[in-house]
């Protein structure tokens, strides 16, 4: 039951930063082709365009996917784009507090991939 710990279920049932962001200046969308899950990211950048001021996500997905998006959007607020681009799978696994089997890696990575896609457009 390691994967479905209280913390993950809490983020799944009560996702943080879920919805749309008024005034967002970059956005992106990613699809998990193996199951059809979708995630959309909307980001408001700082005036100097170097860091993330605010972020929202929307879409549907499994608990791992949604919890990953919820936790990730919490931590990237205030981060510089350079810092965000350094985030990787081990970081996500640390956030989720678990290791993932190969078939679930994509679920957990999808939100990060969407964020990377969005911020790399301003670099």
């Amino acid at each position: 039951m390691d994967l479905y710990r209280e913390q993950i279920l809490d983020h799944y049932k009560h996702p943080r930063n879920f919805g749309h962001l008024e005034g967002a200046n970059i956005m992106s969308e990613e699809i998990n082709v193996s199951c059809g899950d979708k995630i959309a990211i909307e980001i408001l950048l700082s005036d100097d365009k170097k860091s993330i001021t605010d972020i929202r996500f929307s879409g549907e997905g499994c608990a791992i996917n949604q919890a990953s998006a919820s936790m990730l959007t919490e931590v990237v607020k205030g981060m510089t784009i350079v810092e965000v681009m350094k985030l990787d799978l081990p970081y996500i696994e640390k956030l989720l507090g678990t290791t993932l089997t190969p078939s679930r890696v994509k679920c957990a990575l999808l939100p990060l991939e969407a964020i990377h896609k969005a911020v790399s457009s301003v670099r």
């Binding site: 039951m1 199951c35 059809g36 899950d37 608990a63 791992i64 996917n65």
Partner: peptide
């Protein structure tokens, strides 16, 4: 629950099903 999570939790009791399209 999402089908991925159903399949994953069932796997914990060795019940093997498929999730997806």
């Amino acid at each position: 629950a999402h089908p991925h999570d159903i399949a994953q939790l069932l796997n914990e009791s060795n019940v093997f099903i498929r999730a997806g399209n």
